[in-house]
Computed example of a mutant assay.
Amino acid sequence: MKDDSSTRDSANDDGLTAAVQEAGAVELLLIRHGESEGNVAATEAREAGVEVIEVPARDADVDLSGTGRDQAKALGIALGRTADAFRPDTVVSSPYARARQTAEITVETAGWPLQVRLDERLRDRELGILDRLTRLGVETRYPGESERRDWLGKLYYRPPGGESWADVALRLRSVLAELNNLGMGQRVMLVCHDAVIMLFRYVLEGLSEKELLDLAAREAILNASVTRFVRPSGVGPWTLESFNVADHLAEQGVAVTEHAGDTSVRPR
């Protein structure tokens, strides 16, 4: 029989599986990527009342804006002040360019001797046929989908070729299952996207659909913000320590940007 141990070892070099050991992580830092060129384009499109967002590349390849790079550097400076005993042991990022660049700039600026690992389960929600469309664009070009989205709500609506928020939550549950097997004392930083951070809260806190959608309606995840969960024992449930903190940006004179997605989230 062919020995495939080398293949398994290679696979274990990617994503969270690289650190799988016996006990659980004790701290989880969730970072939204810095402002991206896509964020800027989407906001401009909504304000201009146009149907299509003129992004420079496919979603996975959209880079940080200049402001986004400044935000990532400011985040790195702030996190670099963390005592060695409390700095992340592992940094894992969505493979999307804006998240990966944020992670790399942050780690380099902080001076941490860490390699950024990539995990596709942390990628942004897939929008399918609605990709690059503003809400007006969806209502105009796919009125049936607009009606179905309003009827089902954001948690369960899945656009053709895309994902619902519930689909993303399923990915994150598998990420957390691996976090529960990390070595004792592990502090993990995950660099991802606004919807992903909302859904981490949904999963980690056991929120109801209403609680999740109420949260999403009143809060927008800021670019380069930090959300922190802790569990000192390394086992059991997580506790939300802080949410959506971006004070480190204002303190360093860097713009704080919001770039919220569609706020119409509740089923009708």
Rank of each mutant, 00 (worst) to 15 (best):
E139D: 13
E139T: 03
E139Y: 01
E139W: 10
T140Q: 14
Y142R: 05
Y142F: 15
Y142Q: 01
G144Y: 02
E145R: 11
S146G: 15
E147G: 07
R148W: 12
D150G: 15
D150H: 10
W151F: 11
G153K: 00
L155R: 00
L155T: 00
L155I: 00
Y156N: 06
Y157L: 09
R158V: 10
R158S: 14
R158M: 09
P159G: 00
P159T: 08
P159R: 07
P159Q: 13
P160E: 15
G161A: 07
E163G: 05
S164Y: 08
S164P: 05
W165Q: 06
W165H: 07
A166V: 06
A166M: 13
A166G: 13
A166R: 04
D167F: 00
L170I: 12
L170R: 08
L170K: 13
L170W: 06
L170G: 09
R171K: 15
R171C: 10
L172Y: 07
L172I: 15
R173C: 11
V175N: 07
V175E: 01
V175Y: 06
L176A: 00
L176G: 02
E178P: 04
E178D: 15
L179W: 08
N180W: 09
N180K: 08
N181P: 04
N181Q: 11
L182C: 05
L182E: 07
L182Y: 11
G183R: 11
G183V: 02
M184E: 14
G185F: 09
G185V: 14
Q186K: 06
R187N: 04
R187P: 07
V188M: 05
V188L: 11
V188K: 07
M189I: 13
L190P: 04
L190C: 14
L190Q: 10
L190E: 07
L190T: 10
V191Y: 01
H193G: 02
H193R: 13
H193S: 12
V196G: 07
V196E: 01
M198W: 08
M198C: 12
L199K: 01
L199D: 04
F200N: 09
F200S: 05
F200W: 09
R201E: 01
Y202S: 00
V203I: 09
L204Y: 04
L204H: 06
E205Y: 06
E205R: 09
G206Q: 09
G206F: 11
S208T: 15
S208C: 09
K210G: 01
L213V: 12
D214V: 12
L215C: 05
A216V: 12
A217N: 05
A217Q: 10
A217M: 14
R218F: 03
R218L: 07
E219T: 12
A220R: 12
A220H: 11
I221D: 04
L222R: 15
N223E: 02
A224W: 00
A224N: 03
S225R: 09
T227D: 07
R228L: 15
R228V: 15
F229M: 05
V230C: 03
V230E: 07
V230F: 08
R231M: 02
R231P: 01
P232Y: 13
S233E: 14
S233R: 08
S233M: 12
G234K: 01
G234D: 09
G234A: 14
